[in-house]
Each structure stands twice: as structure tokens, then as C-alpha cells.
Computed example of a mutant assay.
Amino acid sequence: MIQTGKVDLRSDSAIETAGGNTSTFTRVTFPSPFPAGAEVIVLPLTQTFNGPETPGIRVHDVTERGFLIRLNEVNVNANVKSDGKHTTETIGWLATTT
């Protein structure tokens, strides 16, 4: 079973520094739930290029019903620090089972 979709995301808050803090993530619900007990894999990919900095995508809490996703800028190198904020981008996703 394969499902696809897209979501428009932006990041108005700073980069997350504490593991497990998902308060700034967005919940995506699959159009149809996967079978109970299925191991679901989510592959996200940026579809647009609206901001000049590189957007980072984080996925968390993947279940048979959906997942959490967050957009933030990535740190390029030690000399260029990101504030984590990023303009709206369209993120496409593909979900499948193993």
C-alpha cells in the first residue's frame, strides 16, 4: 500500500533543541489508515524553493494513521547559523509499508 500527499509548512519559531518536543510540529493524517500493526515509512521531499536558505524537514511519531512533520532551516556550517525560521514551502510525502 502506498499513499502520497502534500502539506504547506512554514517555521515561525526557532530551531528545536530539546529532543521529544513536538509542540511546533504539524499532524498529517493519511487519507486511509494503514493496516493495524503495519510498519509505515514516510519519505518527505521539499517541492518548492521559496526561501533562499536550505529547509530541513523533521518527521516524528509515524503511525498507521499519520505522522508529525516540522520545517526548519538547517545550519549550513560553523560560520553560518540558522535561526530555524523559514518561509512557506510545499512538502510532498510518500508513505508505504515495509
Rank of each mutant, 00 (worst) to 15 (best):
G19S: 12
I69S: 03
N77M: 00
L43K: 14
G84T: 04
T29Y: 11
S82W: 07
P35E: 15
L94Q: 02
F25K: 08
E64N: 14
G37F: 15
T88H: 02
G66R: 06
F25Y: 15
K6P: 00
G84V: 01
V80E: 05
N79Q: 05
K6G: 04
F67W: 05
T87F: 00
I41P: 03
S11R: 02
T29D: 13
G92P: 00
F25R: 09
D12W: 12
V80Y: 10
I41S: 09
T22D: 12
G20Q: 07
T63Q: 09
F34V: 07
A36I: 10
A38W: 15
T88W: 02
T87R: 00
I91V: 04
P44Y: 12
T22C: 06
G19D: 14
V7H: 07
P35I: 13
G5V: 04
L68I: 04
D12Y: 12
T63A: 08
K81M: 07
L68S: 10
D83F: 04
A78I: 01
T54A: 14
V74D: 03
L43F: 07
T96M: 03
N79P: 02
K81H: 08
K85N: 02
L45H: 14
F34A: 11
K6M: 05
A36S: 15
G84S: 03
P44D: 12
I41L: 12
W93S: 00
P33S: 15
I91L: 00
T87N: 00
L68D: 09
G84E: 04
T48C: 09
V40S: 07
W93F: 00
E64D: 11
V74W: 03
F67K: 01
F34E: 11
T90A: 09
I41C: 12
Q47C: 11
E89G: 00
G20H: 06
I2E: 10
V76F: 05
T29W: 13
N77Y: 00
I69Q: 02
T4R: 11
A14G: 12
T98C: 01
A38H: 10
N72E: 10
Q47L: 14
T22I: 11
F67H: 01
T17I: 10
R65D: 14
S11T: 05
E73I: 01
S13C: 10
D83K: 06
